[in-house]
Design a protein around this nucleic acid. Structure first.
Lengths: 150, 150
DNA sequence: ATATGTGCAAATCTTTTGCAAATTC
DNA sequence: GAATTTGCAAAAGATTTGCACATAT
């Protein structure tokens, strides 16, 4: 069974003493079922397609809970599009995000090397690692090869 | 000779076609000479001790240039203190920041493993790496051992 | 029944922008 | 002298908050 289904996220929230409101269910399902990295405004927009009454404040309050419970990761994506933050459900294998400054593409990459570095960081610093954010900015392979329409 | 002195930063800015204004000199020197990670407001405050007329907008505009020239790195420090960003002059050896959620301490860590991962990312993705940001949140050794006053 | 959570609107915080005046080359 | 840069003030963008009402357990 996959531990990252919406139902399980919802269950985790409930088991931590938070009430299961209609809004929280919809927001979590929306976040989970959209494959993309969503920012708060986009999440609100998508969630409203299911439940038009949801408010912006509720979005932020729900994201706050999910962050606190370490159920989602927060990203900047190198601020390619302003100062907002993006969110995605946490996955089993950590991964980093490569943002292309030319075309704006976001690539994901995970490797044993990344997992090993996390372990090294924890060990060498006696640090209990809870959140890891590795973001890389530069130029993607496509853009290096030829000019790209941004 | 150390390539990361204020004079050299200033020279680099000049060599890229930007004018050497009084304000830019002061801001760059302030950023360089303060050992800490400064956010825009703190940088403004410190710079004003040397030149009280400097404006907030000039701070942001100068940071913009330094970022574009890849002379500084931008950090979030896990948003332990709000949404602002922090800056530090780029160093030869990349390093990551470990932020303690309990006491707020920021530790720095660099290792061959980190450098190796950067190379791996570039190679495996045909990606030209220009900026790397690795931030880790969790609990530092001191806080794990005993309760800490935050 | 009671604690929790929501929507609304206003506030806050950080960063950006337009423009006339000042500065640098 | 011409182009760039600054300070100011206002705008913009993202997120947070106070409070009366609604909802979940």
């Amino acid at each position: 069974m996959n531990s990252a289904t919406p139902k399980n996220l919802i269950r985790q929230v409930a088991s931590q003493g938070f009430r299961l409101t209609r809004q929280r269910r919809v927001l979590i399902e929306t976040l989970q079922e959209s494959g993309e990295h969503l920012d708060a405004a986009k999440l609100l927009e998508l969630a409203r397609e299911r439940d038009p009454a949801i408010d912006r404040a509720t979005v932020y309050r729900t994201l706050e809970i999910l962050k606190k419970l370490r159920l989602i990761d927060e990203l900047d994506l190198m601020h390619l599009n302003g100062e907002k933050h993006y969110f995605e459900p946490k996955r089993k294998r950590g991964h980093c995000h490569l943002a292309c400054f030319r075309c704006g593409a976001i690539l994901e990459y995970s490797s044993p090397g990344f997992e090993a570095l996390k372990a090294e960081i924890a060990r060498e610093n006696s640090f209990q690692v809870e959140v890891v954010r590795l973001e890389v900015g530069g130029v993607c392979g496509r853009c290096r090869r030829g000019p790209t329409a941004p």
